[in-house]
Design a protein around this nucleic acid. Structure first.
Length: 331
DNA sequence: GTAACATCCCGCCATA
DNA sequence: AATATGGCGGGATGTT
């Protein structure tokens, strides 16, 4: 059993936390062996109560770092709003160093690189972080060589990655090393389609986590959280604007600036996300799933799947259902 | 597959 | 003067 531990500072529902974890979670679901699961996932945060496990992957949440006795096989440091602050907290940095020194493999996503750099373990090594923070990383940690153009950088056992999609790429690379190219490609096929438009240009790109969202735009992130839990509600721009006490025009504009995608795109993504989890995670009828996720009809859901994933919900369920539930997997 | 219909969302500009 | 906001038009996109 390969243990993967992700540390987040703190956990919010951001893609740099969920994305890489989902890669490993799907790898677990695709395990051909019947008894062993290739990855055991744990998510931890420095403050009790800040762990969110609602992202649809099986997580064993633990609070605080000090109680984690044994270093994992792979240690991942997530980025996000609190990462740069965590890098200034000596207690947190000490705990991270203790784990990172002994873990055979260490990876960072986005601004998670700041925490790793603060431990001193990156001194004399090459690294990368989110493009908007590369300069700051180099200034704050002069002993680290920052490569601003890289998507992800591997130096010894240390892996650093740029933005959100880069974190997913990095996780895929680790899975590929562990289980081969075929497994990694199968996972990529499922995940990557969510991040690309049919034409190939990036739809939900790195600036989802761009700097602006550190505290000033907190309201949009909490709204996004509410939306995730109320997919069947009216999530039109007009309704959301009213909830945020803004005019529709201004709401749409500022939502885009804060979240990196337009309200409509964001809603669509949340609904597809929830639907594909319900499809692969249980056997509820499509009609029920469509209703739960806020698709007016099963036909609407079908079109949305077809448009964004190039596959019908029925086929999606058949293809990605975990091995333990599948009738008979064919090679 | 098509068509009618609804909603989204971005540029432009006036206003605060 | 400079910036944020709100209304409008209408092509693009999504829904039924």
């Amino acid at each position: 059993m390969h243990r993967v531990l992700m540390l987040a500072f703190p956990v919010v529902q951001t893609l740099d936390v969920v994305g890489p974890l989902e890669v490993f979670a799907h790898a677990s679901g695709l395990a051909p062996a019947s008894h062993t699961v290739p990855y055991e996932l744990t998510l931890a945060a420095p403050e009790a109560g800040s762990v969110a496990t609602s992202c649809g992957v099986p997580l064993h949440a633990s609070h605080g770092f000090a109680e984690i006795a044994d270093p994992p096989d792979t240690l991942i440091l997530a980025g996000g709003p609190g990462a740069r602050a965590a890098a200034r907290d000596p207690a947190i940095v000490d705990e991270v160093r203790r784990l990172a020194e002994r873990a055979p493999r260490v990876a960072t996503v986005c601004t998670g690189a700041f925490v790793l750099a603060a431990t001193g373990l990156l001194d004399g090594r090459r690294a990368v972080t989110h493009w908007a923070h590369c300069r700051r990383l180099g200034e704050r940690f002069p002993a680290v060589t920052v490569d601003p153009d890289a998507i992800f950088v591997v130096d010894g056992k240390f892996h650093t990655s740029a933005g959100v999609t880069a974190g997913i790429d990095l996780a895929l690379a680790l899975v590929e090393r562990d289980h081969g190219r075929a497994t990694a490609l199968t996972i990529a096929r499922e995940l990557v389609v969510f991040l690309k438009r049919p034409g190939g240009q990036s739809q939900f790109s790195d600036h989802l986590l761009a700097d602006g969202g550190e505290a000033r735009e907190e309201r949009f992130h909490t709204l996004g959280d509410w939306m995730r839990r109320h997919l069947a509600a009216d999530l039109s721009v007009e309704a959301l604007a009213e909830r945020a006490a803004m005019s529709p025009r201004n709401f749409a504009r500022r939502f885009r600036a804060a979240m990196g995608s337009t309200p409509g795109q964001y809603v669509q993504r949340l609904r597809l996300d929830a639907a594909r989890r319900l499809l692969t995670g249980g056997d509820a009828p499509a009609q029920e799933i469509a209703a739960l996720c806020g698709f007016g009809t099963v036909e609407t859901m079908r079109l949305a799947f077809q448009r964004h994933l190039k596959i019908a919900p029925r086929d999606f369920r058949a293809r990605f259902r975990p091995a333990s539930v599948a009738p008979s997997p064919d090679p």
